[in-house]
Simulated assay, not measured.
Amino acid sequence: MTDAPETTVALPAGVVERYEKFSRFNSPYPAHRRGRAVDLYPGDGVGRSPLAGVVRAVRTVGCPDRPYAAPEDHLIVVDLADEWCARAGVPAGTVARILHVIPEVSPGDKVAVGEALGPTTRSGFFGQWVDDHVHLGFRPPDANPFRASGSLPLAVDAPVEPVAWDGTGRVVERGPTHVVLDGPRRDGGVGSFAALASDGGVPLDGGATHYAGGGAFESRPEPPATDGTEAAALDPGDAVSLFGTRVGTATEHGAGVDGGGAPRIEWEPVDVRANGERVVGISLFAARGDRFGVKVVCPDRGFSIGESVTVALVPSDDPIRLGVG
């Protein structure tokens, strides 16, 4: 006897498009590694609701002690409105979990899509280079919404354009542990999402390769690759390459719309180098706008604004892998 398949939550494109960026796999936590959570980046410090429903509970929780982060985080549990459940393709009574927002709502409050729940918070649950965001996951009607595990598979019904890049760009933003480069760029398409493409034209997601695994976005139809490295869509077992180096292998597909979906990627043991020096990795996501940039995580290397940086990948016997905690 086999278990019944889990319902996949299909997050509508109209919801995701209210945010500047999103990522499903750019995290070391199990829910992200398994394609069961999404991070939504508002860009303005306001934690807007990605759903409609009634607040069931608000809790304050402890988080890892980080010098750059608040000592606590917050969980907002929302009983989803029946109409929102129908739109997302899940049973009535499905529950949402929202993290990294300082709640300005209380149990019993009704919330609508786009409504402010409170300001985002710098949480010890994510790295210093990670921008403020709204973490979103879902639980079936009969599940305990306060446990850390048990979220439903999640798909994002927002196609992402793959954009090729040669790995070279200039620094346009500096932080304590990262820089943002001015590439890749794309022509037009402002308002839709785009992400860095693999050598075979697949838009990539995740922390490459400082987290053990990443993933791919569901992409817009593109011409097939001509270099023979991989097709413009990935199947389990396919090789994934970037900047001419094999960087990962596609595993089983994550949650997807209509049973499809983008696969997860197990990263190969590689080092990321910036101007020849090893750095922690590159942070990948889908973003709107003509210049969405790549974030290089480099806490031990200071690049200057305007400096030209070339990112390369090389096989490694001791790759950097950041875990939970």
Rank of each mutant, 00 (worst) to 15 (best):
V54F: 09
P67A: 13
T245K: 05
G323R: 04
G188M: 09
G188S: 13
Y41M: 05
V270Q: 01
E104H: 14
R87F: 05
P263N: 05
P224M: 05
D142R: 14
W84V: 12
T120H: 01
D238F: 07
V95C: 07
G35P: 10
L322I: 15
R246K: 13
V247G: 02
H210Q: 13
C298G: 06
Y29G: 01
H135A: 12
G323W: 06
P299T: 10
V296T: 12
R291M: 12
H253D: 13
A148K: 14
A239G: 15
L80A: 08
S27A: 08
T251S: 10
D157W: 03
P42K: 07
P50Q: 05
A231T: 13
I76T: 01
V9G: 08
G137S: 15
V314D: 13
A52M: 02
D238Q: 02
R33C: 04
V280K: 04
V54H: 10
G175I: 00
H210M: 14
G213F: 06
A158R: 12
P162Q: 13
D65S: 10
E104T: 05
S316A: 15
D73N: 10
S304I: 07
G276V: 10
V38Y: 08
L99R: 00
Y68P: 12
V179W: 00
E307I: 04
F193R: 05
V58T: 01
R24H: 12
W84R: 10
R264D: 09
P64F: 03
A69M: 07
I265E: 04
L152A: 02
N26R: 04
E104Y: 05
V38C: 10
T7R: 10
G114V: 01
R34L: 14
D82G: 08
E17R: 11
M1K: 03
V247K: 03
G47D: 00
I305Q: 12
R278P: 03
H32K: 00
H135K: 01
R288E: 14
G62F: 06
S106F: 14
R147C: 13
R59P: 00
P203H: 06
A195V: 09
P145R: 04
F243G: 12
P107L: 12
A216N: 08
